[in-house]
Simulated scan of single mutants.
Amino acid sequence: MSSKLFLFGLLCVVLAAAQEPKERAEILTEKAFVRANGYDFEFKTSDGVSRKEQANLITVGDHQGIGVSGSYSYTAPDGQQYEVNFTADDKGFRPEIRVVPQNPQ
């Protein structure tokens, strides 16, 4: 039994080593602004990832918190580009996910 476990572990190591190393993404654009009642930021990277977010203080009953809304997009390993628009506040995290249509070539 232990030789099977060893062979399985060795196979996992070989498969992991065979994976192509990913290039390190670089930040192409970046903006950030902190306000007394929240923040805003956005960035884009060389690997196609982008994110934009806005946050504001909110009051719910006797408690203060922060409400956040924004979006991010990325290309998944399957080659599809995904875009996620979201809101996160006292009602929870509410994402809306969309697959960006590919342009036929």
Rank of each mutant, 00 (worst) to 15 (best):
V84K: 03
A76T: 13
E83K: 13
A55W: 07
G48F: 13
V84Q: 01
S3N: 11
G38V: 07
A88Q: 10
Q102M: 10
V60G: 07
A32W: 06
F43R: 02
Q105N: 15
K91Y: 00
P104M: 14
D90V: 10
E30K: 05
S46C: 06
L7Q: 07
D89P: 07
K4A: 14
G79I: 00
F6M: 02
T75K: 05
F43A: 03
G70A: 11
E96I: 14
Q80I: 04
R35I: 08
P77E: 02
V99M: 14
R24A: 13
Q19E: 11
V49D: 01
T75A: 00
Y39I: 00
E23A: 08
Y72D: 04
F41V: 01
Y82R: 06
S50C: 14
A88D: 02
R98H: 15
N85D: 15
I27K: 12
A76F: 06
F41E: 01
V99C: 07
S46V: 13
F41G: 01
G92V: 00
D40V: 12
K91T: 04
A55N: 07
L57K: 11
L7P: 11
L11E: 04
Y82E: 03
S46R: 13
P104N: 10
P95H: 07
E53W: 08
A32Y: 03
V68A: 00
P77I: 04
S2E: 00
T59L: 03
D78S: 02
T87S: 12
S71E: 00
F6D: 05
L7D: 10
T29V: 11
E26V: 01
S2H: 10
G67P: 00
P95K: 12
P101R: 05
K4F: 10
A55C: 09
D47K: 13
N56K: 12
Y82I: 15
K31V: 06
F41T: 01
P101K: 06
F93G: 04
A18F: 03
E30V: 03
F43C: 05
F86R: 00
P77G: 02
V84W: 02
A25Q: 05
K22Y: 11
L11Y: 08
L10N: 02
L10C: 15
D40E: 15
C12Q: 08
Y39F: 13
V100W: 11
L10S: 14
V14C: 15
F93H: 02
S3Y: 13
E20F: 12
A36S: 11
K91S: 01
N56D: 03
T29M: 15
D47L: 02
L5Y: 05
V84A: 01
V13P: 07
R51P: 05
Q80P: 06
Q105K: 15
P101F: 05
Q81L: 03
D62Q: 12
V84S: 01
N103H: 14
N103E: 09
D78E: 13
A17N: 03
K22C: 11
Q54A: 10
P101E: 07
A36D: 15
S46M: 13
D90L: 06
